[in-house]
Design a protein around this nucleic acid. Structure first.
Lengths: 305, 305
DNA sequence: ATCGAGGATGCATTTTATGCATCACTCCAG
DNA sequence: CTGGAGTGATGCATAAAATGCATCCTCGAT
């Protein structure tokens, strides 16, 4: 959209931290870009950027402006998508951020499913922790976030929720694999590999330890679930995973944990509060929520938009 | 703001119903305007306007677009106002729509009061009925609406509310002026002049008649409160007014009406839902709500934004 | 049948944006 | 303390885009 080219330019400069770098990305000269910014600042009567020796940084006014700009760009995208929808074509782009556990099986299946119906819709998917997720939503870089135990700020607007109890995962020959359901003492009895503190699961586990006054036998901490899963084959220890992150044919076995040992957490599908999503993103979010409802029917609750 | 000139052009065309007329208003040639519109339609891939022999009309896509456009223009205004606010200057423009009863005394006092503090803030004030008020809010033509018994749609977001009982007004020598408080039978005993059906007071009165099964002795119906007030001097009859629409030194006297005869209604200060108002408008709305609270303290309730 | 109001379009002109070369400034390494 | 590398600003020539004028075509109303 031509008319928001100036806005896009400013956004790029803000993200790049330097006019010249931004100009490269935009494939124009730094001169042109510089002058557009000067012109815009002239119009507003205040500088949008502070000039630093090594580039530029948003001023307070710029912070206000950039928020407006990003919402403009995103909302225009929504209008385009709704207009495209009028002519029967369902096209567009959906940008998702989600927790590590949700991504590999669930989200990929969901996207595949959705794209079967609407091949003109493209996706971008990024993993991030629950804190970054909110940032991505507020900067309009992501349309939808699927996160476990998110930080709930004023910006955060849940579209759907499902309860997810933590499950213990371990190699099939681990002694605890013989039990159907594990209690707190079982968890204490074996070394554990934990996800990093930024993760929702870790948040719940730390909380449980605090309540009980016991410490699990942490031996490794990692931000990578794949690494954790693989490590379990090499040493007799356990780790944790959400039901949604598990798959049937896996090497690793999973066992239920007593609710009173480690309470369940909530998995949220969410968007930025007050934002109207593009058609494709809204429909995808709906279909994800519906699917969660079907799979984890028990305590699901759909929050109206 | 240069970058939303194209948007402003489209808005003007939509309001004018013809490219040539819009071009006149915008002080450019119809050719230039025409081509900008064609260019925008080109970009979107669909026409924004239907071409009629006597001008243009928004298409469905255009309706979607115009909503976006108006919200963008209004939001840019908000950003400007917030930025101006950063540099210590409180400037801007506030557009108000309100019911006829509220305007003459109350709103004018309020504006005078506000402008004493912030002389750089300008106002536009328009009278309209409760239905038009919502339309003005949704088209971003008004920032704030002050209306009695409004239509409450999804768009409508109350910022403050105060209860207003109807009062009977009459010439000082009307027989009923001897009573302190009037009942339903008193109202039935005399001819009445009623406001038009589009007004909130009329809504309440019609409702009361329906409940009682009685009809007031309607002799005149008018949309102009000034006319009504003057007429009361010429014939022994009564009419109605809200406390907020009355002033101490008036020729006309007012009397309380029993709650069980005619129930009170609500006066709302409201804005468009989901919208962030410019600084000046938000502050003015606040000050109006606060003043209402002071004056009609009894059943006031402030609804948080 | 005619007229007028309205939207499209070709072409010359004006206005605006871009690119190049260059300046001035600041930091950092040697 | 000095030169280089990186940054944003600016003068000037050029390219691109928007504008205005004259004109055409269409469709109702008279």
């Amino acid at each position: 959209m031509r008319h928001l080219l100036p806005l896009h330019y400013i956004d790029t400069v803000a993200r790049s931290g330097s006019i010249r770098r931004a100009a490269d990305k935009l494939a124009i000269t730094s001169t042109a870009l510089n002058r557009r910014i000067l012109a815009m600042e002239e119009e507003l009567g205040v500088p949008l950027f502070e000039r630093l020796p090594r580039g530029v940084r948003l001023s307070t006014a710029g912070e206000l402006m950039i928020q407006h700009i990003r919402s403009q760009i995103a909302d225009m995208e929504r209008v385009r998508s709704q207009i495209a929808d009028l002519s029967g074509v369902r096209r567009g782009h959906v940008s998702i951020v989600c927790g590590q556990a949700i991504l590999p099986h669930f989200i990929s299946e969901q996207i595949a499913l959705y794209r079967k119906e609407h091949t003109a819709v493209t996706f971008s998917v990024n993993v991030c922790d629950r804190k970054e997720a909110i940032e991505q939503l507020t900067s309009f870089d992501a349309d939808i976030a699927v996160v476990f135990e998110p930080f709930r700020t004023a910006e955060f607007h849940p579209v759907g929720r499902v309860e997810q109890p933590l499950r213990a995962i371990m190699s099939a020959n681990h002694p605890l694999a013989k039990k159907e359901k594990l209690g707190w003492s079982d968890l204490l009895s074996t070394p554990v590999v934990l996800p990093t503190t930024s993760s929702g699961m870790r948040f719940i586990l730390d909380d449980a330890m605090l309540r009980k006054g016991d410490e699990l036998q942490k031996i490794i901490e990692s931000d990578n679930f794949d690494f954790i899963k693989n490590y379990l084959e090499h040493e007799h220890c356990i780790s944790f995973q959400l039901p949604i992150g598990l798959k049937a044919g896996d090497e690793i076995v999973s066992r239920e944990i007593e609710e009173r040992a480690v309470p369940g957490g909530n998995l949220f599908v969410a968007q930025l509060k007050g934002r109207i999503l593009p058609v494709a993103a809204a429909l995808f979010a709906n279909s994800v929520v519906k699917e969660l409802e079907i799979r984890y029917a028990k305590p699901v609750e759909v929050i109206s938009k």
